[in-house]
Amino acid sequence: MLEIDDNLQIADDELVERFVRSSGPGGQNVNKVASAVELRFDVTNSPSLPDALRARLLARRDRRLTAEGVLVIQANRFRDQVKNRDDARARLAEIIRAGQFVPKKRVATRPTRASKERRITEKKKRATIKSGRGTQNWSGD
């Protein structure tokens, strides 16, 4: 059971873990031991996720999300299989926690009269500065 927060848990049978050989340094051990973890979680068909959370997770532009709606997490930070497994589960929980955050709706506002006037006076000031940079008659005629 993967605990996301107090009222959201994901059953272990929804998580598919595959252990593969890790890349990188490790000596002879790297060719023998499958210490890297590939964790797959089907966001689209998960009964644990509320519909709103599922929609937010699927709407994210995440390269770890496949076209079928499966979230794939690769964990090979450690040389120990158990640590990589825990790391992958923690990262999955963090992604789901981030999806629980509902962004606040933007309230459209109009600029005030004073802010419009400040903008116009600043534009005029910049225009006079730039117009002074034009071609000048240096000959003194």
Score class of each variant (00 low, 15 high):
K130D: 15
R40Q: 13
A52C: 01
E38S: 02
R56M: 05
Q9S: 13
N29H: 14
I120T: 13
L92G: 03
G26P: 06
D87T: 05
G26S: 08
N45G: 05
S48Q: 00
G140C: 09
V37Q: 02
G132S: 15
R91K: 12
P50M: 03
P25A: 12
A11D: 11
M1K: 09
L53R: 08
K123I: 12
D12Q: 11
R85Q: 10
K125T: 13
A98K: 14
R119T: 14
G140P: 09
V16C: 04
S46I: 00
L49W: 07
E14V: 04
S46T: 01
I96S: 03
I73E: 07
D87S: 11
G27H: 04
K130T: 11
N45L: 08
D80H: 09
S139Q: 14
P103L: 02
D13T: 10
Q74R: 11
R18D: 15
K123S: 13
S139D: 15
K104Y: 00
D6I: 02
E3L: 12
S35P: 01
S115G: 06
I120E: 14
D62M: 06
W138I: 12
E38I: 12
R113E: 13
S23E: 03
F78Q: 11
A34L: 05
I10L: 10
A59C: 03
A93D: 01
L49C: 05
V82G: 04
T109S: 08
V102Y: 03
I95Q: 11
T109Q: 08
K124I: 12
I96G: 04
R56W: 05
L15V: 05
A59H: 07
D87V: 00
N84A: 05
E17F: 12
F19C: 05
R119F: 14
